[in-house]
Design a protein around this nucleic acid. Structure first.
Length: 655
DNA sequence: TATCCGACAATGT
DNA sequence: ACATTGTCGGATA
């Protein structure tokens, strides 16, 4: 078949494919493996700026099973023994169309094609039982399969892989029926596999469809965080999204969801994409979903799981699967899938939970008027203002002004007891201490580092290399003089989701908390009690952003939006006493916070939380719960529902 | 001036 | 090999 088929391909792919085909034997060529192999060649070529990520067959099945395959199999089961129904099913399958608008080397299309051909064979087998014939009329055709792909090489691979899949299925047909033969040659026409930028092409032009056509879009479009996109990619998003969209904040894949939404419109078409989980977490939720959900609704979703395929270096990302249908297509139940179970629900929220479509937007100020929470101070120093314990000890022995040497607290220092120090100086303090060659050398290096930075704000800060770029609120509150009379409430920004409570606490005011933790300077202690409560943990869990699976605490999204009821002085005192008790127990029991809180929710190696500490937390939870509701909560869902209600009431009140 | 985020990235078992 | 878990500073508003 090679000489005939390969005319349509570029010389490079042709050679590769002939080589592979001859080597393995054409009838044994597995398009999945071939595709993955060719992709590897493509990425080594560095032709792809986004990298290509081959989707594993189990993950493809997670997308296409609930999208259409389960339904077809169900209809087949019902049609067994009934010739008319079986023929109707074939008729339905003949009309279905599929498009992968980021098809890569075509894995989704190939798997779909093969699954449909197998079902087709099953149907003919059933028909044979009824009318005793071995008649075979081809139903599924390559012309039903469409794709868009930016790499010309991958487009070739897709087309070729579809031919190979066709050939394979023809052989399988022959094995099953013997005397029935479907010829691979002459080659059947494949649907439009278009080489181009999916975010700028008109999908309707590639695969036009009528309102009632059964059309499915699927695939694994590229993900790229807003800060990693090129100018051109941002322009792609601007075009693919809608007019008022905050496109500079959204992940690259949001463009596919937007184009998908527009394509679906009020038609029967349905889409299902594998996506980075970040579009359903944190700040992106309120920017993307209210718009998407004006036209469409989430039909089913697969909760976040770790990306994986057979490739050597797996992408480090959490993905989920989201399916959209037109809002007009009501009636069917929605299903949330996860690794171990599936749940039928009335609605799937933009956070991929069983809830309504309300979203929480970032807020600059706290909606309850609570004290301002800010990010810690950011050095942007290339590590040069930061000192290890050894370096700090050496410096202390060298007669410098010890007030410029501060404890340096981030999440790891706070949670795991890592010990680091930093130089905390203004111009005067630097001049007084620059006789010390160590200090002078470090500051010189900071200057160099900042001058070489890409970011203009960092470059500007090279004029003051002795200080952090962002000193934050700390300088406003404490200045540069050593002072440990105040207290700082510390909330680690990134921390494990496997703990029952994110450990938060207090450090004295001489310590510099850096930008891996959020801080409240000199805030009342009862506020720490509120933040440590189960109520707040649930808010963080559902509303906050994530780094992978871990929590990513943010002030604008989690703290400023957290609804807190009116608290009586008596209640505040009670909370203050209970959080004080927790702080005491931490001290008495000893060990780091990571050790004390363990990781009871980890799947593989769970470690228990200190039982005494757990008891104390439960006592605090009870009292905080009571401030929200006079009777016990049934479960966490009830807690969340109450919080979201309070949130929307507060937002409405403020207009 | 003040972040949220990362087809992550380093560490642990 | 795979599970756990949080640095660092850019790009944006």
């Amino acid at each position: 078949m090679s000489g005939y088929a390969l005319v349509v391909f570029s010389k490079k792919s042709r050679n590769l494919i002939i080589e592979a085909g001859e080597l393995i034997g054409w009838d044994k060529v597995n398009p999945d493996i071939l595709g993955s192999m060719l992709q590897a060649v493509a990425s080594e070529d560095k032709r792809s700026h986004l990298g290509m990520h081959y989707t594993s067959v189990p993950n493809i099945m997670k997308v296409i099973n609930p999208l259409f395959l389960d339904d077809l199999h169900e209809e087949f089961e019902k049609a067994k023994g009934n010739e008319t129904k079986l023929n109707n099913l074939l008729e339905r399958m003949r009309k279905m169309k599929f498009m992968d608008p980021a098809c890569g080397s075509g894995n989704f299309l190939i798997i779909t094609y093969k699954e449909l051909r197998r079902l087709e064979m099953d149907i003919f087998e059933e028909l044979g039982k009824i009318n005793n014939s071995t008649m075979y009329i081809p139903t599924i055709d390559l012309g039903q399969f469409y794709g868009i792909e930016i790499e010309d090489f991958a487009v070739d691979v897709t087309r070729l892989s579809l031919y190979i899949a066709d050939h394979q299925m023809n052989l399988e047909l022959k094995r099953r029926y013997g005397d029935v033969l479907r010829e691979t040659l002459p080659l059947h026409k494949v649907g439009d596999i278009r080489c181009g930028n999916a975010l700028r092409l008109d999908w309707n032009e590639i695969l036009p469809h009528e309102k009632d056509d059964e059309v499915y879009l699927f695939g694994n479009p590229p993900y790229l965080g807003s800060k990693k996109q090129t100018k051109e990619q941002k322009e792609d998003l601007k075009i693919a999204l809608w007019e008022e969209a905050r496109y500079k904040k959204l992940d690259y894949i949001s463009g596919w969801f937007s184009k998908g939404m527009k394509y679906i419109g009020k038609t029967m078409a349905q889409l299902s994409f594998v996506t980075t989980s970040s579009i359903t977490q944190g700040e992106q939720v309120a920017l993307l979903w209210p718009k998407l959900l004006t036209e469409t609704t989430i039909e089913f979703a697969y909760q976040p799981f770790r990306w994986g395929n057979s490739a050597k270096n797996n992408a480090g990302v959490m993905v989920e699967i989201i399916s959209l249908v037109s809002k007009n297509n009501k009636g069917k139940e929605k299903i949330i899938y996860s690794k171990n179970y599936s749940e039928a629900v009335k609605n799937i929220s933009p956070y991929i939970t069983n809830y309504n479509n309300s979203v929480v937007s970032q807020s600059k100020n706290n909606i309850n008027g609570l004290p301002k929470m800010v990010m810690g101070s950011m050095p942007r120093d290339g590590g040069n203002l930061i000192l290890t314990l050894e370096e700090a000890t050496e410096l202390i022995n060298s007669n410098i002004d010890n007030s410029i040497l501060r404890k340096y607290i981030g999440a790891e220092e706070f949670l795991k007891g890592r010990k680091r120090y930093c130089l905390w100086m203004n111009e005067r303090l630097y001049n007084e201490n620059s006789w010390n060659t160590f200090i002078k050398d470090r500051v010189t290096r900071v200057k160099k580092y900042r001058e070489e930075s890409k970011a203009t704000s960092t470059q500007n800060a090279s004029k003051e290399p002795w200080a952090f770029v962002q000193k934050g609120e700390y300088v406003k509150v404490y200045g540069y003089d050593f002072d440990n009379t105040g207290h700082t409430i510390v909330v680690p920004e990134v921390s494990s989701e496997n703990r029952l409570y994110v450990p938060m606490g207090i450090v004295d005011s001489s310590a510099i908390v850096f930008n891996k933790a959020m801080v409240l300077y000199n805030a009342p202690i009862w506020l720490l009690g509120i933040l440590q409560s189960k109520m707040h943990m649930i808010w963080l869990d559902k509303i906050g952003g994530r780094l992978g699976t871990s929590y990513n605490y943010s002030s604008t999204l989690v703290y400023n939006t957290f609804p807190v009821p009116e608290l009586s002085t008596r209640r505040k005192n009670e909370i203050e006493e209970l959080i004080g008790n927790i702080l005491d127990i931490r001290e008495e029991e000893g060990g780091t916070l990571a050790e004390l809180y363990g990781s009871p929710l980890a799947t593989k190696n769970p470690k228990p939380m200190n039982p005494r500490l757990l008891e104390a937390h439960k006592e605090l939870d009870k009292v905080v719960d009571r401030a929200y509701k006079s009777t016990d909560f049934k479960d966490d869902n009830e807690r969340l529902a109450l919080l979201l209600n309070m949130y929307s009431e507060m937002v409405n009140k403020k207009g």
